Computed example of a mutant assay.
Amino acid sequence: MGQKILWDCHMHSSFSADSDAPMEEMIQTAADQGLTGICFTEHFDPDYPDTPENLDFSLNIPAYRQKLESLADAFKDQIQVNFGIELGLQPQLAESFSDLLKEVPFDFVIGSSHVVHGYDPYYPSYFEGRKESACYMEYFESILENIAAFDEMDVYGHIDYVVRYGPNQNRQYSYGRYKEILDEILRTLIRKNVGIELNTGGYHYGLGEPNPCVNIIRRYRELGGEIITIGADAHTPDKIGYAFDKAADVLRECGFSYYAVFKNRRPVFHKL
């Protein structure tokens, strides 16, 4: 074993519509775990479809920033707290996201696909009456549409998020089945100098793999990808740093000796 992963760069608090966790509690838990730093990446998904729970994925960025800065200061002797955002990408939002990033000095920007042509695969309606493989393929095609419209994020989040929610999850899913389109996604990201993340959420969803799966991470490295961040996608304190020992092993297996942490939108590389 090499160095333990000491940064969790994907987490949510009650500023995100799908979390009730107080920010203080998330920070304290991370500090108690002995992490060096964390980055909050609150959800901002404008133009989000209606859901059974009527979730509102808008984000009060000034309030979020103010709270984070005051807590970062309060905890500064225990842990570093960075200011990030997870943008829910859709092509029609490209211009507004570009404007936002000119105005707000985030440390780290994740671009993620949550909504595919008006549907979030989190809800079963995305899969109703269709073959699972067609739903997965549409999801990956939408990633390419998103990158073509907007490429100002630092990393693309959980590239195979869709498999968390498929009727069979990842039982019939593999990198090999979707190799052609996944390679196109990875090559496009590398060309645009956008990294990927290893999101350990896949482990707490019972997939036995991170998102994206190990073979995608390996392929990203083979194609020359160097920027990879690590996050547990925690929405509750108990998920912070989840399965980070496995994540470190996966990265090493896939040929990485470093992981990235973004500060002021620039990657700082930490040895594994």
Rank of each mutant, 00 (worst) to 15 (best):
D73G: 09
H114F: 09
I61D: 11
P62D: 11
F97K: 02
L144G: 04
K131L: 14
G88D: 09
E103G: 10
D73M: 10
A72K: 11
L144K: 07
L87W: 05
Y161L: 04
Y123E: 04
K102A: 12
S113V: 13
S133D: 13
D154S: 02
A74Y: 11
D154V: 03
F127E: 03
K76H: 15
V162A: 02
C135H: 00
N60R: 14
L100D: 08
H158E: 10
C135G: 11
F106Q: 09
D107R: 04
R65H: 15
L100P: 01
L101I: 10
S98H: 11
L100A: 13
Q78P: 02
Q92S: 14
G111C: 00
Y64H: 12
F75T: 01
R164S: 13
G129C: 06
L59C: 06
S112V: 09
S112K: 07
I143G: 01
F75Q: 02
Y156K: 02
S112T: 11
P62F: 07
F75Y: 15
R164A: 06
Q80P: 04
K102S: 09
L144R: 04
D99L: 14
H117N: 14
D160A: 01
V81Q: 02
A134K: 13
L68M: 13
L55N: 09
D151G: 15
D56C: 14
N54I: 07
I159Q: 03
E103M: 14
S58C: 06
D99M: 12
Y165C: 04
L100Q: 14
P121V: 01
H114Q: 06
I79A: 00
G118R: 06
K102Y: 14
A149D: 04
R130L: 05
F83V: 03
D107I: 04
S98L: 11
G166A: 15
P62W: 09
F75P: 00
P52Y: 07
K76A: 13
R130N: 09
Y161N: 01
V81M: 02
S133K: 11
I143P: 01
F127H: 03
G84S: 08
A63Y: 05
Y64T: 05
Y122E: 10
E141W: 09
G129S: 07
K131A: 15
E103Q: 15
N54A: 10
S96P: 01
F150E: 00
G157W: 02
K102G: 07
E69C: 10
P124D: 09
V109M: 08
D154C: 00
H158W: 04
H158T: 04
Y161K: 07
L89Q: 06
M153A: 05
A72N: 03
E95G: 10
Y119Q: 13
D160V: 01
Y139N: 05
F140M: 09
G157P: 00
V155G: 00
V81I: 07
V116I: 09
E128G: 03
Q80I: 06
Y139L: 03
I143M: 12
L71I: 06
G166D: 02
N82P: 05
V115E: 01
Y122T: 07
S142Q: 12
D99V: 12
P124I: 03
R164I: 08
A134C: 05
G166K: 03
A72M: 05
R130I: 03
I79L: 05
L144A: 10
P62Q: 08
K67M: 12
F97I: 06
R164G: 08
S70Q: 12
V115M: 00
I159K: 00
V109F: 05
S58F: 05
Q92T: 12
E128S: 12
G166F: 03
A72F: 03
E141C: 09
